[in-house]
Design a protein around this nucleic acid. Structure first.
Length: 923
RNA sequence: GGGCGAAUAGUUCAGUUGGCUAGAGCGCCUGCUUUACACGCAGGAAGUCGCAGGUUCGAGUCCUGCUUCGCCCACCA
């Protein structure tokens, strides 16, 4: 038999691929449209097709798949749409570099050849990236996969552009844009990254045209002086305003420029005189417009000086800067040089310094689009988790500026505008026009530029569903449910998606946004492809398994907090996988040995599973066998294949069933609150520290006894089954595999019910009693360990209780205590003599003695008891002070006061007993 | 210049409406190869909750100020 149960340790190899293929083949990734509940929809933030997945993607994708699988099991028609992004600049850079390396730079090869290469590259990397996503286990509906530049998405982009153009929201203007001299394209404000750099502030003298004297301007970029068209002073500057209207000679040129008055000049800053360079500085651009000044461009798009720079023509900006300063110095016009720290914009893609550059670009008017987007978040129509991002969102929206959407690139959506060569007409059209509508000319030339990548991304909640066509998908699955993304693209993307959806569809794009943290390396740096500090997820999956990776990421990542990733954290997930496997192996092995059936009937389990409804809360107490039978049927569909009577359910059975019910309820609440880490921890702790550590240990003797094994097995299998269900969204592969091994299961776990609990947990009293057993066992173990009793030495434990009622209650538990504490015998007594010499401890009001003639080191025991007593007395002092404070007693809620009183009484009792023990040891 | 986040055990982090005798994973110490698991089990040590004030019967939690680290936004005189 090819049975993974024969493995010594869990190994995911083979299992993960097997199930992914099976799920996909069975069509489980597509929404089940027969379900009546509201659809649950996510569009995957499309990874850049040029990239590979990094840990940030793994986190985001794990969170999304967890939500998706959870919703699917809960019975929602569930759709997660995959896709990739063409990543205009990033791809263009990669392909250009490859072509240059191959000896045919892109500009030599031309647009057609370049695009051919780019598509080839895209096909290649696309396969790699989707493979990575599959390995992670993401249950995406691949039949609906989209690419931002595929035919349908291209239609969406063109349609969006044309509609906005027709609505007058898109305009073309000569404007000072952020220009990358390296990539030779305009970029948007959001793509500029400000970095603090140490530069210089050069004080330059510009001689007055008439008479003696000069004005001194300060600049960080002396090379731009060849674009100067004026010098500004503040109009009310008492020391300098008299110069307004005079002319100065622009050094190193033969030009003469005026001194003008403008508020932009700050008398307190620099020298009080500002050189005005409208073509190369955003502020100066505004000043220039106000004063109707010329715009003198002194450099080329590649940041090389042009004819305006006279003798320096042909130098790049850095060389020109040096030469200009030297020339000014020689001319005696360099007044001063200061070191100067300042913020300089860099291109976030290539790192080159951005030049403000005057060029003709397409812009999108934003303020009109922003209004409904602001309102949606204000009104709570769209919620952001964590909500601190609301402020960031509004701040950006209220300072919004027009979006420069054209890029001087080739890889992207070509701007759907044609220029008539015979008249000034501009034609924006979804279909390539053949004739100019104004003059009838056939001489039409399409705009050379492409659109910003984000111009396709901002349509991403609806373009993958078929917009602009009125498709059934669009009608059924939009608005989407949740958008999961890192907060670093809140402006680039999230905010713009909200605008696009309201503008084009008149509805929100999603109900909520879940911002993930950023995954950082151990030095705190953001993991990214460019830094090369992210491990390849495939390597990690090969070594630890996708389940382990997902489990570790989800458990260790509180909503929206950045995480420091190190490989060691993956061991948590891997070890947990093994734990689940081992516990299952134990139970299933005994099930087999017992000869119990693997399959019972053909019954199919119901699609929903509410523990409180199926088994009842009160009925558990009065008719536990019936409840257990019904719960089995609710989980597995078929009939419980073991005989069970009410009396067969032991204390540990009732306790674990109570805990199970509580955990189901806790997990549900945490999932609802999007606290995925807490939800995962709930199941983790339950499974490892309650089910394995206590329940399985407690039932081991029953499992080996043919008379009693049936019910213990049934309860254990139920716990396994429900645990797999709770764990499946986080760890899909191992749970599906083990579900398949479980007796009596049919169908896929992935599309089985998700347990909920609409009522309180049953067995309140049994739960309390078992917790007491745990405490007693803990005390015995502690005493044994601290007194270094050899493990082989079993002996007797005496539990001294205050009255007959407690004796009656605890007597049935002595077997459990003996088993779990590894004692030979456990006795319960009321009063009676001190069994000294003995090690002793307290569990509530129960005194616990381990009589050990000659074995106990009296000094050690005394020290131990004194330490314990000291702790209790210290606490009681504080507690008495609190209760002695009238204000506390008067003001605090009665419940809190009572709780303090109870605790004090309990501890006082403990202290008395500890002192008695100490006295007894004096002899 | 404006804003946000973080600061809790050696370390990475939980701690949700103030009620805490502050928890977990990893690491550390002790013991255990107990026929599911050493990727394990049992036990243990370990914290002035960044600092200073304040509100409150009560503060890790709320308020004010400060320090350190990180991030975002902002027109490069």
């Amino acid at each position: 038999m090819n049975d993974i149960r024969q493995l010594a340790q869990y190994s995911p190899s083979g299992i993960e691929e097997k199930w992914y293929g099976a799920w996909e083949k069975a069509g489980l990734f597509s929404p089940d449209e027969s379900l009546k509940a509201d659809p649950f929809v996510i569009t995957l933030p499309p990874p850049n097709v040029t990239g590979i997945l990094h840990m940030g993607h793994c986190l985001g994708n794990s969170i999304q798949d967890t939500l998706i699988r959870w919703a699917r099991m809960k019975g929602h028609p569930t759709l997660w749409v995959p896709g990739t992004d063409h990543a205009s600049i990033a791809t263009e850079q990669v392909v250009s570099r490859q072509m240059a390396a191959a000896g045919t730079p892109k500009r030599e090869a031309g647009r057609e050849v370049f695009l051919e290469k780019a598509w080839e590259w895209k096909e290649e990397t696309h396969g790699r990236i989707t493979q990575q996503i599959r390995r992670l286990g993401c249950s995406l509906d691949w039949s609906r996969e989209a690419f931002t530049m595929d035919e349908q998405r291209n239609r969406a982009v063109v349609e969006a552009f044309v509609r906005l153009k027709d609505a007058g929201l898109i305009y073309r203007d000569v404007y000072l844009v952020n220009w990358c001299p390296h990539d030779l394209t305009a970029i948007s404000d959001d793509e500029v990254e400000h970095k603090e750099v140490e530069g210089h502030l050069w004080h330059l003298r510009y001689p007055l045209a008439e008479g003696e004297g000069h004005v001194t301007v300060a600049t960080t970029r002396p090379e731009t002086m060849f674009g100067d068209v004026a010098v500004a002073v503040h109009p009310e500057d008492p020391e300098r305003k008299h110069l307004i209207g005079q002319l100065v000679k622009l050094p190193l040129t033969d030009r003469v420029i005026p001194i003008i008055g403008d508020h932009h000049a700050d008398p307190e800053k620099g020298t009080g005189f500002v050189k005005i360079t409208p073509a190369h500085d955003p502020n100066d651009f505004e000043v220039g417009r106000r004063h109707g000044l010329d715009q003198v461009i002194c450099m080329t798009p590649a940041a090389v000086m042009n004819e305006a720079a006279g003798q320096f023509c042909g130098l790049d900006t850095a060389a020109c800067r040096k030469a200009t300063v030297e020339a000014m110095d020689q001319a005696g016009l360099l007044a001063k040089v200061e070191k100067h720290m300042h913020q300089v914009g860099h291109h976030d893609r290539c790192g080159h310094v951005i030049e403000p550059y005057l060029s003709k670009q397409w812009f999108l008017k934003m303020d009109e689009l922003a209004a409904p987007a602001v309102e949606a978040v204000n009104s709570g129509d769209i919620t952001l988790f964590p909500d601190r991002w609301v402020g960031v969102y509004h701040n950006w929206m209220s300072n919004i500026r027009d979006w420069c959407i054209s890029r001087q690139l080739w890889w992207g959506h070509r701007i759907p505008v044609w220029y008539c060569q015979d008249c000034p007409a501009e034609i924006a059209a979804a279909e390539t026009p053949t004739r100019c509508p104004a003059c009838g000319s056939a001489q039409l030339v399409q705009d050379d530029d492409v659109l910003d990548t984000w111009f396709s991304s901002w349509l991403w909640t609806f373009s993958p569903l078929g917009w602009p066509d009125k498709t059934p998908d669009l009608a059924t699955y939009h608005p989407t449910t949740v958008m999961v993304t890192a907060a670093d693209i809140i402006f680039f993307w999230v905010a713009r998606m909200v605008m696009a959806s309201y503008h084009f569809l008149g509805e929100k794009p999603f109900q909520e946004v879940l911002f993930t943290g950023i995954v950082r390396d151990e030095d705190g740096r953001k993991m990214s492809k460019s830094l090369g500090n992210s491990p390849d997820p495939i390597d990690l999956i090969d070594e630890y398994g996708a389940d382990a990776l997902r489990c570790s990421l989800i458990m260790l990542t509180p909503t929206g907090q950045d995480i420091f990733f190190s490989e060691a954290t993956l061991e948590v997930g891997r070890n947990f996988c093994n734990k689940i496997f081992q516990a299952s192996k134990l139970v299933l092995g005994i099930w087999d040995e017992a000869g119990l059936p693997q399959v019972v009937g053909e019954a199919t389990a119901p699609r929903t599973l509410d523990l409180a409804t199926v088994a009842g809360t009160d009925r558990w107490e009065t008719a536990p066998a019936a409840s257990l039978t019904d719960l089995w049927q609710g989980v597995f569909g078929g009939k419980l294949p073991v005989q069970v009577t009410d009396a067969d359910l032991g204390l540990e059975d009732r306790w674990i069933l109570s805990r199970l019910s509580q955990v189901v309820s806790d997990v549900g609440q945490n999932m609802d609150k999007r606290r995925l880490n807490d939800a995962a921890y709930d199941v983790f702790n339950f499974f490892r520290h309650e089910f394995c550590d206590w329940y399985l240990e407690a039932i081991k003797p029953r499992l080996r006894d043919e008379q009693t094994q049936g019910v213990a097995l049934a309860v254990a299998v139920l716990n396994l089954g429900i645990s797999y269900k709770l764990l499946h969204p986080v760890m899909p592969f191992i749970t599906e595999e083990l579900w398949n091994w479980l007796p009596c299961t049919s169908g896929y776990l992935m599309t089985s019910s998700y347990p909920t609990s609409s009522g309180p947990a049953p067995f309140t009293n049994d739960h309390r009693l078992f917790e007491e057993v745990k405490e007693i066992v803990g005390v015995v173990r502690n005493v044994r360990n601290e007194l270094a009793v050899p493990p082989g030495k079993r002996g007797t434990a005496i539990l001294r209780v205050p009255d007959q009622a407690r004796l009656d209650q605890l007597t049935p538990c002595i077997g459990l205590v003996a088993l779990l504490a590894k004692m030979e015998e456990v006795q319960v007594v009321v009063g009676g003599a001190d069994p000294s010499p003995a090690g002793a401890g307290l569990a509530g009001n129960i005194e616990i003695f381990l009589p050990m003639k000659g074995l106990v080191d009296l000094d050690k025991e005394r020290a131990r008891l004194e330490k314990e007593l000291g702790k209790i007395e210290g606490w009681m002092k504080g507690c008495r002070a609190k209760l002695g404070n009238a204000k506390f007693v008067d003001n605090a809620p009665e419940q809190v006061v009572q709780q303090q009183k109870d605790l004090l009484a309990e501890n006082e009792d403990k202290a008395v007993k500890l002192r008695e023990r100490l006295d007894a040891l004096q002899d």
